[in-house]
Amino acid sequence: MNELKWLGWIGTCFVAGAFFQIACENAGIGYARVHERAFLAPLIFLIPLLRGRKRWTTIGCGSALLLLIVDPRTTMLIVYVMSLGMWAVMFRLNSITQKLVIGGMILTGLLVSAAGPTVLKAIDDRFKSAYGMEGNSQFRSGLIQTGVDAFLASPVYGDMFRGGTSFPTGFYMETAPGRFDQEIMAPLHNDYLEFLTKGGLIGGGLMVGGIGGSAWIAWRNVKRLKSLGMTDAAHWQGAVCICICALMFTMLVNPVLNNPECAVPAYWMVAQALIGQRYVRRLNIARCLPQPVYQQEQCV
């Protein structure tokens, strides 16, 4: 299991890379685009757990918080809070508290869903106003309305993945001084809605089922590996599970999957959950083989 140890450094690379990109942007080279890949941040947890270096926890979490101050994004704030909550549920709480916290998280999720984008908009506006910035909820709500209209036009099959994914935003670009006549086109900033628009309920359902199912499989792997006493592998799958849940949130408010620089790490996380399941399946077979016949039924 030694070979898993370096995985935590990917989380460090996320924080270091974010600071590097912000520094480059300040120096006039390129631009920083960090919050869309915030789902990689939970990998920081793997450093102390797999390498036994507690000091790195402080350094990792401290620099992640510093990043939130330097580049205040609501996505990152919610991903950090969610990751810490999930990490506590998975590895720090006993089973009764675990159930209570999971119940609380589901209830919060339902309340947020019932309130629609209002709660997220309120968080976004309040968080950004604390830094003297303006929220971009108006931009998003216009795009969401466009996406909903396109989805309702063909809800089952969508466009069968035909056609472009740039939609009119209702905002105009200045082509000459004082002349705003070119409408800005942008992706929907909500991958679920984008898949629903292009693939209908079938395409959207398959995407949610595939990615959500991977998170569920990683969570099941954690429980199975913990019960077998394979703590390192359980920590690995735990971090992967949190990353996929963070990814599912990030997809709700940002264009993630249709951008290769976000899709590659995102699908890599999904792949790790699936390969973890192959590993657990092999462990199950290995456990079943040498045992007497009367115990085999328990292993199936």
């Binding site: 993945f161 035909r162 056609g163 292009k198 899709a263 699908y267 890599w268 792949a271 399946r281």
Partner: peptide, 27 residues
């Protein structure tokens, strides 16, 4: 100009897990 090409084609990454040799199932 823009479609879900990357989002769909890169699905090969998670699907390639099932093409990996069984020797990688162990650590």
């Amino acid at each position: 100009a823009s479609s879900l090409f990357s989002a769909i084609s890169l699905l090969l990454i998670p699907l390639s897990v099932y093409l990996l040799p069984p020797t990688l199932d162990t650590f």
